[in-house]
Computed example of a mutant assay.
Amino acid sequence: MKINNDNNSPRSFDDEQALSAVFRLLSHHRRRVTVQYLATQNDPTSVTDVVDQIALLEDEQTDTYKFQIWMSLVHIHLPLLAEAAVIKFDPDRETVELDAQAKSMRSHLGLVAAD
């Protein structure tokens, strides 16, 4: 089944599903910030560094709030991104880094509305 996009070039249904999956993964601002931040890092990064970056952007620096961010990352957002092969997440070392799918996903970050 072919679907036409705005510029009238055909795309397959599978392409549309893949694009939808990317947008679902990027639908939460913490996942977008995580991918954007990791794109600036050359080595595995601590989850704490990602938490600090998110807390800074969310303008809330209390320890309690940072712990809430950490919990949401470790239990929800990072596993979702890792399952999609966007990041490598080592829960034992509490480190993350971009993975193979990240390059294609990063091109869509500009299309997702910023908070």
Results as ranks from 00 to 15, higher is better:
residue 93 R to D: 15
residue 46 S to R: 06
residue 78 L to E: 03
residue 35 V to F: 04
residue 6 D to K: 07
residue 75 H to I: 07
residue 92 D to Q: 12
residue 107 S to Q: 03
residue 62 T to G: 00
residue 7 N to R: 15
residue 20 S to V: 02
residue 57 L to M: 12
residue 64 T to Q: 05
residue 94 E to A: 12
residue 58 E to T: 00
residue 13 F to S: 14
residue 85 A to H: 08
residue 82 A to T: 11
residue 13 F to L: 15
residue 19 L to I: 09
residue 38 L to Y: 02
residue 93 R to T: 15
residue 72 S to K: 04
residue 56 L to W: 03
residue 83 E to S: 14
residue 5 N to W: 06
residue 72 S to A: 11
residue 91 P to C: 04
residue 24 R to H: 14
residue 19 L to C: 07
residue 114 A to H: 08
residue 8 N to C: 09
residue 48 T to G: 05
residue 108 H to S: 15
residue 12 S to W: 03
residue 93 R to L: 14
residue 42 N to W: 00
residue 17 Q to D: 04
residue 54 I to A: 14
residue 113 A to G: 14
residue 34 T to G: 05
residue 31 R to T: 11
residue 93 R to V: 10
residue 107 S to C: 01
residue 98 L to H: 13
residue 36 Q to R: 12
residue 1 M to I: 07
residue 66 K to V: 08
residue 18 A to H: 14
residue 6 D to F: 07
residue 12 S to I: 05
residue 28 H to E: 11
residue 16 E to S: 07
residue 92 D to M: 10
residue 57 L to T: 02
residue 59 D to G: 05
residue 12 S to E: 12
residue 22 V to F: 00
residue 22 V to C: 01
residue 15 D to N: 13
residue 46 S to E: 06
residue 70 W to L: 06
residue 51 V to H: 00
residue 95 T to N: 12
residue 94 E to D: 07
residue 83 E to I: 06
residue 7 N to I: 14
residue 105 M to K: 01
residue 16 E to C: 10
residue 13 F to I: 12
residue 83 E to A: 11
residue 105 M to G: 00
residue 46 S to M: 02
residue 58 E to P: 03
residue 3 I to L: 10
residue 52 D to M: 05
residue 11 R to V: 15
residue 13 F to R: 13
residue 74 V to F: 04
residue 1 M to E: 09
residue 101 Q to R: 05
residue 47 V to C: 01
residue 63 D to K: 08
residue 31 R to W: 02
residue 19 L to A: 13
residue 44 P to V: 06
residue 57 L to N: 12
residue 54 I to R: 09
residue 95 T to A: 10
residue 107 S to T: 08
residue 83 E to Y: 05
residue 24 R to V: 15
residue 17 Q to G: 04
residue 106 R to N: 11
residue 99 D to T: 11
residue 110 G to H: 03
residue 8 N to K: 08
residue 88 K to D: 13
residue 42 N to P: 01
residue 28 H to K: 10
residue 72 S to T: 10
residue 112 V to G: 01
residue 50 V to Y: 02
residue 90 D to V: 02
residue 29 H to G: 10
